[in-house]
Nucleic acid binder design. Sequence first.
RNA 1: GGGCGGUUAGCUCAGCUGGAAGAGCGCCUGGUUUACACCCAGGAGGUCGGCAGUUCGAACCUGUCACCGCCCACCA
Length: 903
Amino acid sequence: MLDKTYQPSELEHRIYTAWEAANSFACGQPGRIAAGARPYTIVIPPPNVTGSLHMGHALNNNLQDILIRFERMRGRDVLWQPGTDHAGIATQMVVERQLMEKQEPGRQAMGREKFLKRVWAWKAESGGTIINQLKRLGASCDWSRERFTMDEGLSEAVLKVFVDLYREGLIYKDKRLVNWDPVFQTAISDLEVEQREVNGHMWQFAYPLVEGPVDGIAEIIIATTRPETMLGDGAVAVHPSDERYKNLIGKLVRLPIAERHIPIIADEYPDPEFGSGAVKITGAHDFNDFEVARRNDIPLIPLMDSQARMIVTPENNVPKHYEGIDRYEARKLVLKEIEELGFYRSVEEKIIAQPFGDRSGVVIEPMLTDQWYVDAQTLAKPAIQAVESGKTEFVPKNWEKTYFEWMRNIQPWCISRQLWWGHQIPAWYGPDGEIFVAHDEDEARALASKYYGEDKPLIRDPDVLDTWFSSALWPFSTLGWPEQTPELERYYKTDVLVTGFDIIFFWVARMMMMGLHLMKDGQGQPEVPFHTVYIHALVRDEAGAKMSKSKGNVMDPLEMIDEFGADALRFTLSAMAAQGRDIKLAKSRVEGYRNFGTKIWNASRFLEMNECVRVENFDPGALTQGVNKWIAGEVEKAAGAVTAGIEAYRFNEAAGAIYRFVWNIFCDWYLELIKPALQGDDEEAKAETRATAAWALDQSLILLHPFMPFITEELWTRLGERGPARDTMLILAGWPETKGLVDAPAEAEFDWVIRVVSEIRSIRAEMNVPAGAKVPVSVLGAGEATRARLEANRDALTTLARLGAISTSDTAPRGSVQFVLDEATFALPLEGVIDISAETGRLNSEIEKIGKDISQIDAKLANENFTSRAPEHVVEEQRQRKADAEAVVAKLKDALKRLEAAS
RNA sequence: GGGCGGUUAGCUCAGCUGGAAGAGCGCCUGGUUUACACCCAGGAGGUCGGCAGUUCGAACCUGUCACCGCCCACCA
């Protein structure tokens, strides 16, 4: 016997273990392959090994699991390929912090090899956290295939791609300005930089002309938000059209403090309208200035070391006392000294945009360094084309625009990181700096000795690759590439990629580029990694703010699972996953959908109590009882809606369809309607009804399973204990197929029953009829069909509307409340209960309301334009509506007369 | 500056191809109807942001304005 309420916490673990024990998640099941099942593949967006499950993961993986469970039940050979990402910076950070907390020697003191051992040890110990959390959510990944971006095989793939792209000229080394993170002391890519508006200042300084005034101008005023960078200025630029400075171009100014002479140059970059119109050019510490300096052959003068501390070089001529001080200390010092020297002109407060490292949270310093780059522009071309041609489609479609926008303006991708944790760059340097890129050291040595004609010592590049470099290979590296494995053959290309829009650039774009460059289809043409990219919303808090630890508005999915169960959380996320909108998640929604679980639980309990047991070879197409025919049709309609919803990635609609079916049709009406039959003594009808109820519940469990896998599996098992043995666990049960079960007469009949009962209930409530009172009903002007329906559903109507005797007659009893339904008028004798004048008022206002409808329709129909231009069926519909409304009004007027006659 | 999205019930949001405004939560009124109070029944509540247009017909299409988000690029 089922308990009164569902207790998720007790069961979820047990059910998950049972699925795993039955090997339900594994791809390539022999039975399916033998049956010719087509593959269906999703690769998981690999969470960081350091990660723990947040709401975004929960949504993302929930949607993937819905697709996977759905296709699995539809008979496909599904592979949900799981794994984790080594997450370079994040992981290194975690371990370094740990060393600090334990007061152990830091990374540098420890040395590379020992430190990496520590990171691996950490990974072995704590790296599985998020995987276990995914399991708690119910994710049915093929865990036997779990991969890690630094696995041997995946590292092999990274190595091969790097070497191949290098040899093709698509990877190269370059010295240019990069975004430098002074905390992690590494370069980061443009995408890892976040522009933030902060309160800042804009100062104005004067640089005096070396050779004295020209046109009466003795000094040139420059503006800066970063005074310390003036020490590295290589020029002052003015716009060539700026009349004020025309005669100054080519002259030298004296750079205070550094005491260098720098030229005034003409360049298109300065805006004559802004400030003084003159811009100081610090080519080594500003991206715009870098371009100006390059164009004009102005030297780039570095000012800082890897921690953004000032350096003193013959080149920059910075005074000794700046050596080693932090850039912000240097700023103060420059301001002070400039003022003392008399070159300080003004300051204003200003909101300025500054670049911050997205992980470190400190201001990024543009630095001139040697780094490795991918020629993204070349790789982007096929990736753009693949989306233009529809080989890969975004859902919703509007994200394609974002993708195109970025891809068409793509910059070289800086892939080297000055970290230790990651894939070390397979490049070796000779004593003269010559580069040898090779799969291993032996190959590099061979290349070097060929190049030099003798053996020379080589040093390996200490840097590692951007984490996203290996992620870009994920859809095929996880399947065994570069080996030509059977899995690669069978499951690539993958089907759908499910992800949030925040990583379209980081990940989706790069997978497209790498996939198209490296993978070929059967015809030898470049193959996309997936045909569909489903972009889901971001999960926000109740007020619409991004959830973040610092704001303290984080809703922990695991806490939700503990409190309400994984199914409740999953259903909430599904029901709210409408396309193109953020999800504002409130706890009350989760609670509400927990109640939905309880509802189906109790419906199952009801069937159990009433011995509604599954019957072998049950045929829903061969039913005799109207109510059963009706529910069979409703099951089919619900199945169609759920199927269509998932197929179209309209998860909220699919969830809504099964919710409405289970609660508002199956529980609210069907179970109530069959109560008389279940308690009656027509054994044949009872048997059919029991079997039908059991079947309809089974179908509900199937349709609900992708959304609420745990409770449905539990009920499937528990209910299965009573009937003939089940063939499979629910997770592997077959998805409903259309069988033409919708029976129009049954549909019309039960639509009528529902309307009759609802009308009567409404009137009872309005008239304050005591709940226990049985009210007789007299039906006037009933046609054949109505008489038959009244007869067939006598018991159900009596129970649901709490009626006394039901009769048909031509005259209404005295003091009746009357309502019109189709051709018939229903009269409830409530003499003594009703207030005749109030009732008259009610009928009159009803007539008035319908009258308004009628005049509206009349206006439409009287409009020549409408009748001639609107489609025939629309016009006909309006005519029909009018006729129906008029018939109702006529009957209401009759009812009114009868009421008056009675008083 | 460029782009994307939003504005519908008190709150959170659906509303697909233009053809009679919807859900959940909340609120109000009833309820010991032998599955379920995590429930049942009934009810109130909307100028679909403003304006203009297209159309026989607009929450939906177009334009425009207002406000609110987000992304990208930024004037030193």
